[in-house]
């Protein structure tokens, strides 16, 4: 029965991978990778639960954390580079 849950997670992961490869915009990819990260958290939790090793849950927590920071960083980067590019002409030279 747990295996069924894991299977559901895997199927969803496959869907997310499909979306991340297909695109079409970078935002779709970010979204898909973010969803994939969340699914990884679930998968590791389920697996950790199956093997009765609570330390796996720390790992899942790290995943959730990194996933969040990664998404924020990537979104910022994209937003920043789109907004920032046109203004790039400042050759002030300090710093």
């Amino acid at each position: 029965m747990m295996a069924a849950v894991a299977l559901a997670v895997l199927v969803t992961m496959a869907l997310a991978v499909f979306r991340s490869i297909k695109g079409p915009t970078v935002y779709d990819r970010i979204l898909a990778v973010n969803a994939f990260g969340t699914l990884t958290v679930v998968l590791i939790s389920v697996y950790g639960f199956l093997s009765e090793r609570p330390e796996f849950l720390d790992l899942a927590l790290v995943y959730a954390l990194i996933n969040f920071i990664g998404t924020i960083a990537v979104s910022k980067y994209v937003e920043f580079s789109h907004m920032g590019r046109p203004t790039g002409g400042d050759e002030l030279g300090d710093i």
Binding site: T25, V26, Y27, I30, L31, N34, N67, F68, T71, I72, S75, K76, V78, E79, H82, M83
Partner: peptide, 15 residues
Amino acid sequence: TATHALARAALHGGV
């Protein structure tokens, strides 16, 4: 929070 960051980025990115 992450969804909002992404939505904002997409909006500002011209989607």
